[in-house]
Design a protein around this nucleic acid. Structure first.
Lengths: 147, 147
DNA sequence: CCTTGACCTTCCCATTATTGGAAGGTTTAC
DNA sequence: GTAAACCTTCCAATAATGGGAAGGTCAAGG
């Protein structure tokens, strides 16, 4: 089948299939005489694997490793599990950061009357000094001039 | 003060300060005779506002609006609150998506023995057909060739 | 007075995954 | 035989940030 069908069969756009080929995530498809890419069921199968991995938030580099794990019939399931659990942790860390932001902003919003008057603690907290809406990262701030 | 000090005072890198200037998030700093950017306390104050907004996950475009809201002394607090709550929703939506991925993957990992043998339901779920690890997005998949 | 190091400047490049579009060739269906 | 719907490659843009090069400036100390 050609790339358009492979795209709709796999759920990956034709553009992305070409991109995955260009970064060697998948091997170069064979071509018709006129240069059209041709995909086998097996290749579409791989594309679906890739799409599911993407749906789970794995990056291209991580999917590269997952494909290697998939193809390595002798790797221990522990290897896969370790890899998966690392990713779970990273997803949860990202989710926590987002929830923390949401919570902080929600608290600020709770203190805002939300009426026609201009006084607004949300803006004022952003504007006033000696506030910090996130844990201070001392690796990044105020090393120099900290006299 | 020059850009380095403004950077450490505000918690925004010199590189980003120049970038914010280039995209007109902040107005162009005045210069010394030799071309160095010079910042007033007021400008650093604005930079801190921007950093706090970034810490809450607002994009540059959103910060542009926040700055406008900050400077508009007559806008209703309801305007700010609405804007903030929209962002809370979007943060929560992103967090939900990430948690859903984490949960799905965690469930898969739970079914994996994680021993020295190769059998691994995580990889197999990614590989086998008729699985979907994420809600199917029918706007994206299988419109063409759906015969 | 000159050197050195820590600043500063601009400009360009890279990142990640994805989409959009242009210019042009192919295939298919009528 | 033509039009629509494919396909090709190449280039650009996205968002926010950092890296680095090449070069100018400034303050301190010898």
């Amino acid at each position: 089948m050609k790339i358009g069908e492979a795209a709709s069969e796999s759920g990956i756009s034709a553009k992305m299939i070409r991109y995955y080929e260009s970064v060697d995530l998948i091997s170069a498809a064979s071509r018709t005489e006129t240069g059209y890419r041709v995909y086998s069921d097996d290749e579409v199968h791989t594309l679906r694997f890739i799409r599911r991995a993407r749906d789970l938030g794995f990056s291209v580099e991580q999917i590269r490793e997952l494909l290697a794990l998939w193809r390595d019939r002798s790797r221990a399931s522990a290897d896969v599990k370790r890899f998966a659990l690392l990713h779970v942790e990273s997803l949860e860390a990202k989710a926590r950061r987002l929830r923390e932001m949401a919570l902080t902003l929600q608290h600020l919003a709770d203190t805002c009357h939300g009426d026609a008057r201009p006084h607004c603690p949300i803006i004022e907290t952003l504007a006033e000094d000696d506030n910090d809406v996130a844990p201070i990262d001392r690796t990044r701030r105020a090393q120099r001039f900290a006299r």
